[in-house]
Design a binder for these strands. Structure first.
Length: 772
DNA sequence: ACTAAACTATATTTC
DNA sequence: ATAGTTTAGT
């Protein structure tokens, strides 16, 4: 009476074959839009239903939190009620979150090879990495002219992921820069060790190290995970490859899904050879090609395929589709970048007014390109969402407050402490801080330990001493019991006790108000996290591992994003802007064939995002930055690679004059209608960063209401009694109606609409609202 | 010792 | 355009 459903039904023969595969290595070459997520999820369900594999014995690894959240949801939907006796779900995680979990739970043995390591390690993001590097440079008396921070970091990262120690680097160095780099690398690594911190590379590396050296842990995991699946295999790097091998070493049941034509992260260490050489690395591997595309029209598919066909590093596929030819790819040649942006906005306007249900995306090579397009859209009063760029969690105020949390949880975390020691300004100046750093360096102490020792020794002048002992006391007080206290509680204490909130309130600028809004939203996220039972650790892990791609709201009518961020997404209407030599393909990739092929793959990724309509554009002139002179540009070679028969010039070729007139008209309308377009960094998105849990996305978790409409608005405490549906008085923003009330008492969350200011979600306790 | 204004060198993509 | 750094002023 088993209600096992047939998960092979409704699949094409190739997909069926992939889903039905059970034992042994499997390579699924899944072209763009060929239903690879479907294959992965169905395979998991099929294993559970037809082969009685328990969910916990399956591990699937994806690249973004968003992808793993979606995959988890889809598997859940598939098996719920359809698979008898399925009481556990497969583990779906990103490589990074999997490693973090592993290291926190089973990482203790690493202390043997990594002195001072504890499972309470901090995670350092690139900002933190940068601070370390700056400090190392200072220590070594170097400056950026010698070697740019970014360059140094990427070389360190490269060395790390190839398991090269500073000594290896020094030995193989053939030039003075490399010799010096070895020293920088050595110091950098020492700092991480001293701070008990891991950078992104370390998360993978140390997980590999743990599994390679600790037989028990390896065997335990191998026993547990009978089946391993890896999504986006073309973007795995060496550590990820090794991790995968270690996890599947006993059974060899590893299924990888990928597309060599979509390998676009070579610069981040991804090794395209992983996918190209899979059959060699895993003898007896079965290879299945998914070549039927279900996404795009024939014209779009052929155009994209024609471009990528110019690459040599391919296994080779030819995608086909049963769908109709559709429209041709529209090409627009703009006189300059502003005109290009206006044309895009204009065309979006025209398209969406005819097809209001369609979603459009504007893709570009560099984030800097978004500005002009945003401006153009704003002139039309068209709502849009920008993905990436300056995202929420990278904002200074969020990073500051998060740094406080990190410092409280891990006193050894000197980088975080350094970040907050004089933020807000509390009279602990640069010289004082440098003294403490020096002392720490000399005595092998963390910043915090050095500070304590120096206070004991009364090593500071009176003024500094007062400031420092005050700081020390404040931090110690907040740190006690931090692991057991609700996150929001600690967060609130940080905001109040450190004077951070006061600092922003006193600033009084529009910008400061926005920052306050962001912090309120962070507080909301913290409350949500507590409700999900997360510890401060979990919260911080989450904050460290969210990515821009996780914040994509597919329901947005208009999205602006880089082609990198667009991977895995699809849109009825797609624009690709800035198809110019030097921009796309980017100038940094011009000189190497490898780089050029990656750019071409990026182009392929961009084009294949489109379902119905693809527009490509370039500008004859563009200025590199602000005051610079406009420079003439040459149309991208990728445009030449599209067969002319598939291209058509933008109809009517709206000239400058039309656009110019329109621009004025539109400006007027926008002025009258009160601009509502801007959603960039909107606080509404913030919850998503934290909500789509790396660990536990709640089933059918309510996503924040569609697309944000409003610029972040200041919120000051509301001191008035409130109830559901009633009106409350806001100190600055007047009356607002409570639209929604979640929970009760001081933990209640209310959604308030302030006319003219928009929706605001508040937590009663922290906003000073009393719910009767 | 800190702040604010002036100056200058600066942009690829990001887990 | 903007972030980061230097300089002058408090």
């Amino acid at each position: 009476m088993c209600l096992s459903m047939d998960f092979l039904e409704g699949l094409n023969p190739r997909q069926k074959e992939a889903v039905a595969h059970v034992e042994g290595p499997l390579l699924v070459l899944a072209g763009a839009g060929s239903g690879k997520t479907r294959v992965i999820t169905h395979r998991m369900a099929h294993l559970m239903a037809a082969h009685r594999v328990p969910g916990w014995a399956i591990l699937a690894v994806t690249f973004t939190n968003k992808a793993s959240g979606e995959m988890r949801d889809r598997v859940r939907t598939l098996i719920t009620g359809n698979v008898a006796g399925a009481d556990s779900l497969p583990t779906v995680a990103t490589f990074h979150s999997f490693c973090v979990r592993l290291l926190r739970r089973e990482g203790a043995p690493l202390a043997e090879v990594r002195p001072g390591f504890t499972p309470l390690f901090s995670i350092y993001d690139d900002d933190d990495q940068l601070s370390i590097l700056k400090s190392v440079y200072r220590q070594l008396g170097l400056d950026e002219k010698f070697l740019a921070y970014r360059a140094a970091l990427s070389r360190i990262s490269h060395a790390k992921s190839h398991k090269e120690t500073p000594e290896d680097l020094a030995r193989n160095a053939t030039d003075p820069v490399s010799t010096r780099l070895a020293v920088i690398y050595e110091r950098y690594q020492t700092r991480l060790l001293e701070s008990n911190a891991l950078d992104f590379d370390d998360l993978l590396l140390e997980a590999v190290r743990l599994l390679a050296h600790d037989r028990l842990t390896r065997e335990k995991l191998n026993r547990r995970y009978e089946f391993l699946m890896v999504d986006e295999y073309q973007d795995t790097n060496r550590s990820q490859y090794e991790l995968m091998r270690l996890l599947s070493s006993e059974r060899g049941n590893v299924a990888v899904v990928g597309d060599e034509d979509q390998s676009i992260y070579g610069w981040r260490g991804a090794n395209i050879r992983n996918i190209l050489d899979f059959e060699r690395d895993f003898p007896g591997a079965k290879t299945i090609r998914l070549e039927q595309n279900y996404r795009s029209t024939k014209n779009i598919l052929e155009a994209a395929s024609a471009v990528v066909a110019n690459n040599t590093e391919r296994i080779g596929k030819w995608l086909w589709t049963e769908s109709g030819a559709g429209e041709k790819v529209t090409l627009y040649e703009a006189p300059d970048a502003e005109n290009e942006a206006l044309w895009i906005a204009d065309t979006i306007e025209a398209h969406l007014s005819r097809n209001p249900q369609d979603r459009a995306a504007v893709l570009y090579r560099t984030n800097a390109q978004s500005r002009q397009i945003e401006e153009a859209l704003r002139r039309y009063g068209r709502k849009y969402v920008v993905v990436g760029g300056f995202s929420f969690y990278q904002r200074a105020e969020v990073k500051d407050v998060v740094a406080y949390l990190k410092a409280l949880v891990s006193p050894q975390d000197s980088i975080s402490l350094l970040r907050v020691i004089n933020t807000p300004a509390r009279g602990i100046g640069r010289t004082t801080v440098e003294q403490i750093e020096q002392y720490g360096l000399a005595h092998g102490l963390s910043l915090w330990a050095a500070l304590e020792r120096m206070l004991e020794e009364r090593a500071f002048p009176a003024r500094a001493e007062a400031a420092l002992s005050g700081f020390h006391r404040m931090m110690s007080e907040m740190a006690t019991g931090v692991e057991s206290r609700p996150i929001a509680e600690t967060l609130r204490a940080v905001l109040e006790n450190t004077g951070y909130r006061t600092m922003l309130e006193e600033e009084g600028t529009q910008e400061a108000q926005g920052r306050l809004g962001n912090l309120d939203e962070l507080l909301n996220a913290a409350v949500d996290a507590s409700e999900r039972g997360e510890t401060v650790r979990d919260f911080l892990d989450h904050a460290a591992l969210v990515s821009d791609a996780d914040s994509v709201d597919e329901r947005a009518p208009v999205s602006l994003l880089t082609m990198h961020n667009a991977k895995g997404l699809e849109f009825p209407v797609v624009f690709i802007a800035g198809l110019e030599e030097g921009l796309f393909p980017h100038s940094r990739s011009l000189d190497s064939e490898m780089g050029m092929e990656e750019e071409r793959r990026l182009c392929y990724v961009g084009m294949t995002r489109a379902e119905k309509r693809l527009y490509v554009s370039w500008a004859r002139s563009r200025r590199r930055y602000g005051g610079g002179q406009p420079e003439a540009s040459i149309r991208s070679r990728f445009l030449q690679e599209v067969p002319p028969a598939l291209l058509e010039k933008a109809r009517g070729q709206r000239g400058q004059v039309d656009l110019y007139a329109e621009q004025h008209m539109v400006r007027e309308t926008a002025r009258k209608n009160l601009y509502t377009g801007k959603t960039y960094n909107s606080v509404e998105n913030i919850r998503q960063f934290f909500a789509g849990g790396a660990q536990a996305a709640a089933p059918g978790a309510a996503k924040p209401a569609a697309v944000p409409h409003v610029v972040p608005r200041p919120v000051t405490p509301i001191r008035k009694k409130t109830g559901v549906g009633s009106t409350i008085e806001h100190v600055k923003y007047g009356r607002g109606t409570i639209l929604k009330l979640e929970g009760s008492g001081e933990d209640a969350k209310v959604t308030v609409n302030f006319p003219g200011y928009g929706l605001k979600k508040l937590v009663a306790k922290y906003a000073g609202i009393k719910i009767e």
